[in-house]
């Protein structure tokens, strides 16, 4: 079991540093926007000006996690499906329309996927392991697998997170390239986990990543089998696809609350964490089929109180 010690999300929900997001969740409406904290509390103003939305939200979430965790973060694993799109597009425009030899490097520097993890390490003056994973709809899950490996290596405070940002241009790619017509949004979730139980009794039991599935329901059954449980015994099920709600009658479609970004299953972990914390539910399963034939699954559990 990989216990979650603290979790922070910036999404279209009022999720940042809230004691219980589960109670306040409201489905997205066309008017929903990203609900951001006062970034000045987390990032110096000079730095803030040059940081894109994805960097601001990921740094704030990571810093919030560090502030709420006694142990210093000793490994960082970030997942992002499309990375720093604002700066990528900005630099594409810059060099395609440059008239002179002098180009501003800022957008280029901030366009690489690992700017997110890199900025977190810079901001926290953190010299530990720092990894950036990207695998379309499974970007958070592969980052989580790395975090599990870090925890197995004995790391005491593994920061694992996901971040993705929507830019206007992406809308043109629906529905041909992004084969999903739901509202494109931005969001980030970071959490700190380790094998040590500490105050939290809620954690991640296992994570499944299938690059391609031909029968996702069988793959989920096999995943639950290897964890000695079955779907009927799971208290809370979160799915990415609305049509999958009928798979089990009490499933919740998490994209209804996050909008569409490919690493949104990280926020489903936050939803599950708060549900397990504040209700009688003891187990939760996240089924992520947000992109093509990829299948991800995350099983969470609340330990019984120790006697």
């Amino acid at each position: 079991m990989y216990y979650i010690h603290t979790i922070a999300s910036i999404t279209h929900q009022d999720s940042f540093q809230q004691a219980n997001v589960w109670n306040t969740l409201t489905p997205l409406t066309p008017e929903s926007t990203l609900i951001t904290p006062d970034y000045k509390l987390f990032i110096p103003p000079a730095a803030l000006r040059r940081l894109s939305p994805i960097l601001r939200m990921a740094i704030a979430a990571a810093k919030s996690c560090q502030e709420n965790n006694e142990d210093k973060i000793d490994a960082i694993s970030i997942g992002t499906a499309l990375g720093c799109l604002t700066d990528t597009e900005k630099f594409l425009v810059t060099f395609h329309s440059a008239q002179s030899d002098t180009l501003s490097p800022t957008a280029f520097i901030q366009s690489t996927h690992n700017t997110i993890g890199g900025q977190i390490s810079l901001d926290l003056k953190n010299h530990s392991y720092n990894m950036t994973h990207t695998q379309n709809g499974l970007s958070f899950e592969v980052a989580l697998m790395d975090a599990i490996l870090c925890a197995d290596d004995g790391k005491k405070a593994v920061l694992v997170g996901a971040a993705d940002e929507a830019i206007g241009f992406l809308k043109q790619l629906q529905p041909d390239i992004i084969q999903d017509n739901r509202e494109l949004t931005s969001g980030t979730t970071c959490c700190i986990l380790s094998r040590e139980r500490k105050a939290s009794s809620i954690g991640i039991v296992d994570c499944l990543v299938r690059a391609e599935t031909s029968d996702w329901q069988t793959d989920i059954s096999d995943f639950l089998d290897r964890n000695e449980t079955k779907i009927a015994d799971i208290d809370a099920v979160f799915v990415s696809q609305l049509e999958d709600v009928k798979y089990v009658d009490h499933a919740v479609c998490y994209i209804d609350y996050t909008g569409l970004y490919y690493s949104a299953s990280a926020f489903a972990v936050h939803m599950a964490y708060d549900k397990l914390t504040h209700t009688n539910a003891k187990t939760a399963l996240i089924i992520n089929r947000v992109c093509g034939n990829q299948l991800g699954a995350i099983l969470l559990q609340k330990d019984e109180a120790p006697h």
Binding site: G83, T112, H113, N114, G117, N130, M131, T132, H133, T134, Q135, V142, V209, R210, A211, E212
Partner: peptide, 12 residues
Amino acid sequence: GVTDFVNTISTA
């Protein structure tokens, strides 16, 4: 023909 596990690392 690999289908079991595919991942990408992007750290420049």
